[in-house]
Simulated assay, not measured.
Amino acid sequence: MTTVYYIKDAPRVTTKTITKTVHYYDMDMNELAPDFTDTAVITQSIDAATGEATYTTTDDILAGNPNPAIKGYTVYIEWEDATTDQKVTFDSKDIDTYTAYLKDAPTKTTKTITKTVHYVDADGNQLAPDFTDTAVITKSVDAATDQATFSSKDDQLAGQANPTFKGYTVIQNDPEAAATQTATFDANDVAYTIVYAKDEAKTTTKTITKTVHYVDEAGNQVAPDFTDTVTITESTDPVTGAVSYSPEFATLGFQVTPTITGYTVVNAPAEVSVTQTVSYDTASQTYTVTYKKRCIRHYNDAKWKRWGNNNA
């Protein structure tokens, strides 16, 4: 009798790797971070005789991964299987999922830069309202990259020509005050002061003279003239036009009418022997004192003889 022995065929073994992949995208499907992956390896053994399948594995869990924090982004779409564990079998398929992030809004800062021009006199008194102009600039900082961009509807600080003021002249000027400047976000407010000096007053000096002549009836000088003078200055304010005088009033003097031997005063105006108060508008004054020659009689024996003036 012969015995036949059979050796059982080895089982058919298949090893399968199941992969879980999580992508991290922005809303335009741009990659923001490296993919997260995890794998499970399961071995299937099919009995050669019975066809029964058995499975072995060292890890049948596809792990989840907490969504990474990405600067400047906030999770917007999150699939549950991206962050949770899944138990898989030999028949499970690969898992491909993603988390979508929405970019955070930029940080915006708006800054107003002001240009001010003051107009003052030499004592710091304001002569006209200040000129002002502003530039408004917005700084946007990207939430992800920290890159700054700037925008402005008007980044120009205008200037204006220095105003003119009656009776004043600029003595301290800054060309930047009247020029236009381009402002930046980092620029500081700017201020300029234009200083004006008041013009000199317009002055006119006038001399007023009092003159007294001393003459005989024929107009011949019998004594030196008397004269006295005063000086008055008229000042016109260049701004207001107001007129002032220095001094406001002055006095013209006098002298006592001289006594001249052989002569008698026959005409002497009252003003000759008194002081006179005058102002800028007073005209020079001229007076004449007239003398008459006196007659001198001498007795000569028999009769008087007249000497000198035959009209005596």
Rank of each mutant, 00 (worst) to 15 (best):
I61G: 00
T57D: 04
K71T: 11
D59V: 04
D59G: 03
P66Y: 12
T37K: 11
G64H: 04
G64V: 05
A49T: 01
T57R: 05
I42F: 07
A63Y: 15
P68W: 15
N65S: 14
T57E: 02
I46E: 15
S45T: 00
D59R: 08
Y55F: 14
D59N: 13
A49K: 10
T50L: 04
T50Y: 03
S45Q: 11
V41N: 07
A49S: 12
P68M: 15
A69C: 03
L62W: 06
T43N: 05
D60N: 15
G51D: 01
I46L: 10
A69R: 13
P68V: 15
T54Q: 10
S45V: 00
Y55D: 01
N65T: 09
P68L: 15
T56M: 05
A63R: 15
P68T: 15
A49C: 08
D38I: 03
E52I: 12
T54A: 05
L62I: 10
N65R: 12
Q44V: 00
V41Y: 03
A69I: 01
N65C: 13
T39K: 11
L62G: 02
T57L: 02
I42Q: 06
S45L: 11
A48P: 01
D38W: 07
A40V: 00
A69E: 13
T57I: 02
L62H: 06
P66L: 14
N67L: 08
A69N: 12
V41D: 08
D60C: 05
T50F: 03
Y55M: 05
P68E: 15
P66R: 12
V41G: 09
T56K: 14
L62Q: 07
D60P: 11
A53I: 03
D60L: 02
D59K: 14
V41R: 11
A53C: 06
T43H: 07
D59P: 10
T37R: 04
I46W: 01
D47I: 00
G64R: 01
V41P: 07
I46D: 08
A49N: 09
T43G: 09
T39E: 12
T37Q: 08
T39S: 13
D47K: 04
A40D: 00
E52R: 03
A40Y: 05
G51P: 00
S45R: 14
A63F: 13
T50A: 12
T58F: 09
A69D: 12
A63D: 05
I70Y: 06
K71S: 09
G51Y: 06
D38G: 02
D38E: 01
G51K: 14
T56Y: 07
E52F: 03
T57N: 07
T58R: 11
I70G: 00
A40R: 07
A69H: 08
I42S: 08
I61Y: 15
K71P: 00
G51N: 11
S45N: 12
L62R: 04
K71N: 07
T58A: 06
A53G: 02
G51Q: 12
E52L: 10
T39V: 04
I42D: 05
A69T: 10
A63H: 15
A63S: 13
T58G: 08
A53E: 06
T50S: 15
A53Y: 02
A69P: 00
T43D: 04
L62P: 09
T58W: 10
Q44K: 14
I70A: 02
D47P: 00
I61N: 08
I46A: 14
T50R: 09
D47F: 01
T58C: 06
T43R: 13
T39D: 11
Y55H: 08
A40L: 04
T50M: 09
